[in-house]
Design a protein around this nucleic acid. Structure first.
Length: 153
RNA sequence: GCGGAUGGCCGGAUAACCGCCGCUUCUCUCGAGGUUCGCUUUGGGGGGAGGGGAGGAAAGUCCGGACUCCCUUGAGCAACGGUGCCGGGUAACGCCCGGCGGGGGCAACCCCAGGGAUAGCGCCACAGAGAAGAGACGGCCUUCUAUACGGAGGUCAUGGUGAAACGGUGGGGUAAGAGCCCACCGCGCGACUGGCAACAGAAGCGGCACGGCAAGCCCCACCGGGAGCAAUGCCAAAUAGGGGUUCUACGUGGGGUCUGUUGUGCGCAAGCAUACCGCCCGCAAGGUCGCUCAAGCCUGAGAACCCGGGUUGGCAGCUUGAGCCGUCUGGUAACAGCCGGCCUAGAGGAAUGGUUAUCCACGGCGGGUUUCCCGCUGAGACAGAAUCCGGCUUACAGGCUGUCCGCGUCG
RNA sequence: GGGCGUAUAGCUCAGUGGUAGAGCACUUCGUUGACAUCGAAGGGGUCACAAGUUCGAACCUUGUUACGCCCA
């Protein structure tokens, strides 16, 4: 994606986005994009959050002016989690959990950030970790403007 | 058999399902360029297949390089930093090998920044008479005067100390003593011998003079420019096409040029001749590594510093290299050489994973036919490539294996 | 990834080989009817850790740990 071609590619993606992107991902799955920018992490940190036994979830709906479609996910493991091996391991488990859960429960146009905890993120049994993520997603989505227990489709 | 010393190697294995990052290849699709409309080149996206994907320390960043940029280069000097027994290895090293010296251990073996203290300076607290060219506080002895707590002289055997006290022990000797003399030990110099050398041995000589600290300054020898892949180069986008302060300079010679400008003379004019300026060439001056010398370079506009503005994208560097494995040869060894074979991660907010089963060793509990077997259960050491190599240091569950030493027993 | 620095009392810092200090804070006493201020006295230290050099190390050398700063 070189810059001179970028505008053209953008136009194509918009024009044929409904074909390529959606068709490739079969029915309702939306591509997950990894967050990279510091700014996005800071915005997410100011939004809604929900802690669980194994990690902390932050989530927000992107405002106007930003890209409207797609789910973006970021992963954070600070030095508090441990040395490089421990941090990488925790991030891998979070990434795997997000891959399994977020396509079915996540909402289009939202940003999520998963934050690892010292010890618990790598040691918690994996099925419980998935349960935690489902629970946290519900809590983050809920309550605000979708009414009480806004049923996730 | 028990205890110990030392070197090398490994550092979980296999399978299933679902995933991640490069590479090769096939296919579908979307664009761009070329086109003889057959096709071809190139870029993006989707899918399939094949094959690859963390370490012995990837770590600490403590040394040494490769590579890139910066300073104009070379030699010498100075400054600063480093290294420090000798010989060898190496691209290089503060690393490695072999040897020497000192210390520890019955031994195998281990440890040592291990040059110079007669080049100079400095320091040696407290205690002690005295802490560094020895001198003399108490004491001992002789002598003088008036019997002296006084004067003169001799002397260091003796004096709590201290990390360290100016040779030690014994004998002779003396007024008291003293290497004053003798024996042994220690110490210094050392012909000569062995060794490339460090060094070792040593005839003989010297009556003893020369304390410690250089991981204090220093002296000697050798080495070293600075910064680091977030180096650096390219492409694209965007903004700007900037502002301020300070400093320095306004030479000279010759030749060419009148098809560079201008002036003057001649000519009606085209043009011809000539002068200043400009341009080219040279010289001088100035500047240019902290200093000197040499070479080179720069200088009519230039140099230095400060302020201000934009981007946070992509590509290259990026993995074939002092590379790895094996046979043989040389060498005590580190290592080197010939030949043959192999290609072994290249990500980029950062992939190499998630779950399960069996096995492998380990711990705990229970049971059994108790050198062993079965069941349940728990935790699989230290730790994650980030430009690449050679070392060092530090962390590390457990296991395999070679060589050697001491003690005991048996033959 | 690379480069560099710091660690001494509860806090901020001195201390360049010889019994470890200052200010603030703390405790007690005095002053006051009481408090603040002021005065006096006192307690509090594995000098980050470990080895080495030295007779002797907070200090010199080497390694380790923790914390912090810088880069295009």
């Amino acid at each position: 994606m070189t810059p001179p071609n970028a505008p053209k590619d953008q136009a194509h993606a918009d024009a044929e986005g409904s074909q390529s992107a959606v068709l490739s991902c079969s029915d309702d799955e939306i591509a997950l994009i990894t967050l990279a920018k510091r700014n996005d992490f800071l915005k997410a940190a100011r939004a809604r959050r929900q802690g669980t036994a194994s990690f902390l979830l932050q989530g927000r709906r992107r405002s106007e002016g930003e890209e409207a479609s797609g789910i973006r996910v970021g992963y954070t493991c600070s030095k508090k989690v441990g040395n490089a091996v421990a941090r990488n391991h925790a991030k891998r488990r979070l990434r795997e959990a997000a891959r399994l859960v977020i396509p079915e429960l996540g909402r289009d146009g939202w940003d999520y950030v998963l934050i690892g905890k010292k010890g618990d993120t790598s040691e918690r049994p994996f099925d419980l970790l998935l349960k935690d993520l489902r629970y946290a997603l519900k809590k983050v989505h809920g309550e605000r403007k979708n009414g009480p227990q806004g049923a996730p489709k």
